[in-house]
């Protein structure tokens, strides 16, 4: 019983990362119908930026900031810088293609290539040595019976829920959110309605990449070893989670992320850990077989 609770808490934390990244995928997809395959690597870049920012701030002579202050300074800085990376990709790689009216899949391939550039560029610049993330928060462990919860876990889970709340509010309640949803329906009519499409798209990338940066920072704090390929696998998986939830839908990405987290943790709890991917992906495949548009996705009927 206690083991189960412990697993649930671990799954919530693990799922939070998937959810945070899946939200970024789904935001961009919801607006551009573009699978931004570079998103997993933006997450990785976010973790490295967080590393750089924290080390820099900790290293400034005579400042001697405590950990929490570094964290408070690091989170917004990381988010802004990572958002910058995302927007740069959009500006130099995706937008020209969109302007030229290239086939959608060519943009997807470009995204894949951008991901590779980020990954290997990082490897070439910083070398293959793994980076150790500095400890910013003093670890507090609360135990209840045999179930232990660290303050970091609580922070991660809280962050995921908060981000979901913010995004859900932006997308469903604000004017800019309305414009975001409208673009995915009809990108030709939107400029005619006086909506600056490019600004909305940049805003979408700011949101998605910013929260990927947040996820990167939290991930680096939870698992303080950084390596250039850390974003690839988790990114692909988060994307699958977003699709299972119903890509383009904020709730779908959130639920899908946690679903994948739960499946993975529970599989590891009951089976040998090498079977994790096999079982997790089989379950997701079955879900997609039964509900081809994902949990929250709505099939758009084609008019005949």
């Amino acid at each position: 019983m206690e083991a189960l609770f412990q697993n649930i808490i671990n799954a919530l934390q693990w799922g939070s990362f998937y959810a945070l990244i899946a939200l970024g995928y789904t935001l961009v997809y919801g607006v551009l119908l573009l699978i931004n395959f570079a998103h997993g690597d933006i997450f990785m870049v976010g973790a490295y930026i967080a590393f750089g920012v924290s080390v820099f701030v900790l290293g400034v002579q005579g400042l001697n900031l405590p950990g929490w202050a570094v964290l408070a300074l690091g989170v917004p800085l990381t988010m802004i810088l990572t958002a910058g990376v995302g927007v740069t990709l959009e500006r130099i790689a995706y937008r020209p293609l969109r302007r030229k009216g290239a086939h959608r899949l060519y943009v997807v391939i470009t995204a894949l290539m951008c991901g590779l550039i980020l990954e290997n560029g990082n490897l070439a610049l910083l070398g293959a040595s793994r980076k150790k993330f500095p400890e910013l928060m003093e670890k507090t462990v609360w135990t209840l019976g045999n179930v232990s919860v660290t303050n970091l876990k609580v922070l991660v889970i809280f962050a995921a829920f908060a981000v979901f709340g913010i995004l859900n509010f932006i997308v469903t309640r604000t004017r800019i959110g309305m414009a975001m949803r409208a673009i995915s329906y009809d990108k030709f009519a939107i400029p005619l309605m006086g909506i600056p499409v490019d600004n909305i798209i940049v805003f979408t990338f700011v949101l998605g990449s910013g929260f990927a940066g947040l996820a990167g920072m939290l991930f680096a704090m939870s698992y303080p070893i950084l390596e250039p390929y850390m974003g690839a696998l988790i990114g692909w998986k988060a994307f699958i989670a977003a699709v299972v939830g119903g890509i383009g839908d904020i709730r779908g990405a959130f639920v899908g992320g946690f679903l994948l987290g739960f499946i993975e943790i529970l599989v590891v709890a009951f089976f040998p850990s090498t079977l994790r991917d096999l079982i997790a992906f089989s379950i997701l495949l079955v879900i997609l077989w039964m509900k081809p548009t994902g949990l929250f996705g709505v099939a758009r009927h084609q008019k005949i």
């Binding site: 692909w236 090498t274 991917d277 096999l278 992906f281 997609l288």
Partner: peptide
Amino acid sequence: AVNYMVIS
């Protein structure tokens, strides 16, 4: 997913 499943 099939790619991952086959490898795994």
